[in-house]
Nucleic acid binder design. Sequence first.
DNA 1: TTTTGCAATGCAAACGTTTGCGTAAAAATA
DNA 2: TATTTTTACGCAAACGTTTGCATTGCAAAA
Lengths: 358, 358
Amino acid sequence: MIIISKDVRIIMQTFDVMKDSRITLKDLAQVLNLSPSTISRALADHPAISEATKEKVQKKAEELGFIPNSIASSFRKKKSHTLGVIVPRIDIHFHSLVISGIEEFAYKTGYNVTIFQSKDSITREKEITKLLQNKMVEGVIVCLATETYNYDHFKKFRKLGVPLVFYDRVPSNYDTNKIVINDFESAFKATEHLIKKGCTRIAHIAGNQSTPIFKARLQGYKSAIKKHHGNLDEKLIIPCKTLSYEEGALCAEKFLKFSPMPDGIFCANDYTAVSVIQVFRKAGIKIPEDTAVVGFSNYPISRVIEPHLTTINDRAFQMGIEAAKLLIRLIEEEKKSIKSETITLETELIIRESSMKP
Amino acid sequence: MIIISKDVRIIMQTFDVMKDSRITLKDLAQVLNLSPSTISRALADHPAISEATKEKVQKKAEELGFIPNSIASSFRKKKSHTLGVIVPRIDIHFHSLVISGIEEFAYKTGYNVTIFQSKDSITREKEITKLLQNKMVEGVIVCLATETYNYDHFKKFRKLGVPLVFYDRVPSNYDTNKIVINDFESAFKATEHLIKKGCTRIAHIAGNQSTPIFKARLQGYKSAIKKHHGNLDEKLIIPCKTLSYEEGALCAEKFLKFSPMPDGIFCANDYTAVSVIQVFRKAGIKIPEDTAVVGFSNYPISRVIEPHLTTINDRAFQMGIEAAKLLIRLIEEEKKSIKSETITLETELIIRESSMKP
DNA sequence: TTTTGCAATGCAAACGTTTGCGTAAAAATA
DNA sequence: TATTTTTACGCAAACGTTTGCATTGCAAAA
């Protein structure tokens, strides 16, 4: 559907005339009979410029619709005021929350955010790191691709003096800045909650054990069980690859065949937890009376599923805020710090009906 | 938790030495006894440069770890190779899908994506448009803030020759490029589906009527009812402000008091649809036997809720792809086109259990 | 009055890359 | 061999802003 009206023609004319006729500092200088340097300083509120000229310049700039060319400025000052962000996928709710936090803080501080998706591919991740170096970003925030176990492609940033902050899926054995939650403690809390609710056979749907966060969650679960129940039944632990909704259903089917069945299940994420609840309910198992369920991440779905899901708030938005805050601090610090920082965010157990045993 | 090891110290030394010692074209030129222009052309695979020198340059560039300064290049060429994206919020699943599509296409085409959240505030939206002009973005993709009814702050882009593409919440009465779905037809399809399933009293949870997309959905609903049932009972239409999960529950409560109750409900989004299903089921109403429900958007939750929700796939990812594709075409077109384009994506009715009346 | 000091502005270079034009040498043509 | 064409490269300007240093005018101190 294409519409060409008389109106559009008029607009086009304007368009063609104005095209690329951006007013520059020099133009302003000429008009005002001042030097470009004075204009520049006036606009930057430099103390050496008199208030009178400052006002004059401001007014004229406004009048002529002067738009400072920040690329020229970046070029000259060697500062792009841009942060690069590499996430596995933008459309995963957790990451979109983190990005939202990053943008929020960056915007307030005057930085721009350029995003890239690694699609969990190390090849693409490497490509992106190269791009980011060209682009002269001032700092980079990364959540590693699942495939990434070697971090060499990030070393160049250090050489270039570009600070890095990793979040969630962070490098192990590599000293750098990290924003994480305490997965161990969170899992411990979640498991302990089930124990306190009277569960005696608590199962765990575990994530990919080559990913540190899921490993830590399993450890937290184990630790809580050992502390309160003494011994641990390894059979109650079912490892998953992707922790998808579908995989969760498969785990649930397995649990249904156990005898006795688990009376509590701690799932490494919310998708599998939701899946378990649905499969169990279809099988006539009452949640939470027969089996209590706890998830991890506080996805929107957790407060929609019936019964509402007890889960761990993983502070995704806050993670983004902290990542941006730390990164910008590192960028603006006079002498770039040598120390690497790891910020651990406090999680919170959100207790809902799925674990409220009578 | 701060760890300083001997290793880190060594890295730091390297770091300090290397800092800001980026190799430039000039450096390369000097080393190779060639002029910067030759280096530039060699690296750009210019036909006027011999294969021999090209190879020599490539090799040396690799060897010295030359990183082209794309800010300088952007500055000189007046091309930032950057797209600006303004969305109300990144953490809304629909938008994160669109952004994902935008990034996907932009990445393949060599463009970067800088994102901004308007937070549905017109003030912030205006601020962002100013920023984007400074940044010399080559094109902008926008989903308008709910507050936005005046589009003057976007007119400057046209004057600057920067193409704009709007998606989802697009300006009305303003000739520009738009990517939309056919909300009218989709709503018509959804309502007709309920009619064909035998529903005779079909209600509608409508969105904010000052937003064109929700207005169109209401019209589509009305049109289908009128076509098949002849007359329309306006009481069966409940308008909502935000279409939130909570608002959906309020609507559901109202429907429960109707007599006779609606035997079909078409909701303007999935949140309210899910809410309706839950409230109805708690009240003992069988879905879909007593009342069939159809949502809109195909949110992840729609295939988790029991019964799974019949809904409209709004092609969010594809919308992002198309927006980026159109924008980049507009950017790269020789003579910027005068015509505004509106691309309407075909939606798809996804039929699941919530509408499968026997 | 001369000197010193300060406030306000200008000069000019620089940032790294690109590009139109010029030119030398080599190759092709007359 | 003389002339033209082609090939391969260099020169130098330009992009718009910033910034160290120089400069001007003028008031305060000597």
